[in-house]
């Protein structure tokens, strides 16, 4: 019941989903239809069912939910292994992003059993039966588990995520003390998988104008960097009823971060910094 790190899968699942109709707030093109079932290969003894969101942009059909039976004796331990197994052995048209397979690239973020995480660092044994896999929540879908991230990356670009200096460039590198460098610990490690932004209810309703936890964590990463000299401009850009203040400290972000970072705390730091500069 007490979760002390985000990698803990909750064993106490009192509610699988909010008690609302499955069609609540869903437009017709996004309605999910029942899909087909793909049987396990003959001879498989230990199998597990995976319900996976499918969308084929060329078919003209709505998204559907396909059920795959994965042979666990022929497959690696992670959810990403199961997806690769399906693509290799069952349906080669299954589309998903992956690269590093060890939780450092942030490509394979998706909604698994209702929470966002990286498929490469989620154990199949931690998944419910049947396991459910959706693409990252609240994104426009290009194909199957591949979301269009244009909007969230545009939001990232909007905070100017680079060092902005006014003083003349030094001859050598810009120096930092160990303590100054320590201030960006817990923030610079973000891999931009957007698990937090996609899991933020406030971003679901106001994603067009609210920047979302991932981008605001990055904003704080630059605000607290001792080498950056555009603090006032950055705060001016953020001080907005929507960009920053649509964060209502729900903290789904901190619960879901696959890198164990704390976007909720970063946002609180920004709010505090704005209050302090005004006083």
């Amino acid at each position: 019941m007490i979760i002390d790190s985000s990698n803990r899968v909750s064993r106490f699942n009192w509610l699988k989903r909010f008690p609302i109709p499955r069609t609540f707030n869903v437009t017709t093109e996004s309605l999910i239809q029942p899909g087909r079932t793909w049987p396990a290969p003959s001879g498989a003894t230990r199998t597990k069912a995976f319900d996976i969101y499918r969308y084929d942009p060329d078919s003209g059909d709505n998204p559907r939910l396909d059920r795959f039976h994965v042979d666990l004796d022929d497959c690696g331990p992670m959810v990403l292994d199961a997806l690769i197994w399906i693509k290799n052995k069952v349906d080669s048209t299954l589309a998903f992003r992956r690269s590093c397979r060890e939780g450092v690239c942030g490509s394979c973020s998706m909604t698994m059993d209702g929470t966002n995480w990286l498929a490469c660092t989620r154990f199949i044994s931690d998944m419910a039966t049947p396991a459910t896999i959706y693409p990252l929540a609240n994104m426009r879908i290009i194909k199957d588990l591949v979301p269009d991230q244009t909007h969230v990356f545009a939001q990232y670009a909007a905070i100017k995520p680079w060092l902005r200096s006014k003083t003349p460039e030094p001859e050598k590198e810009r120096l930092q003390s160990v303590a100054e460098r320590g201030r960006i610990d817990g923030y610079y490690e973000c891999i931009l998988c957007f698990c937090c932004t996609s899991g933020c209810p406030s971003h679901w309703w106001n994603g067009d104008r609210f920047l979302g936890p991932a981008v605001l964590l990055q904003a704080w990463r630059w605000l607290t960097d001792s080498r950056d000299e555009a603090k006032q401009e950055r705060l001016d850009d953020l001080e907005d009823p929507f960009r920053l203040y649509r964060c209502h400290t729900i903290l789904n972000c901190t619960r879901t971060c696959p890198k164990g970072l704390n976007p909720g705390k970063a946002i609180a730091e920004i709010k505090k910094m704005i209050v302090e500069r005004e006083s």
């Binding site: 989903r17 909010f18 069609t23 609540f24 869903v26 996004s30 990252l136």
Partner: peptide, 14 residues
């Protein structure tokens, strides 16, 4: 139009 992946409809209450 591209479909929107489900959010509140499937996200686990925490």
């Amino acid at each position: 139009p591209r479909p929107l992946s489900p959010n509140i409809q499937i996200y686990r209450p925490q």
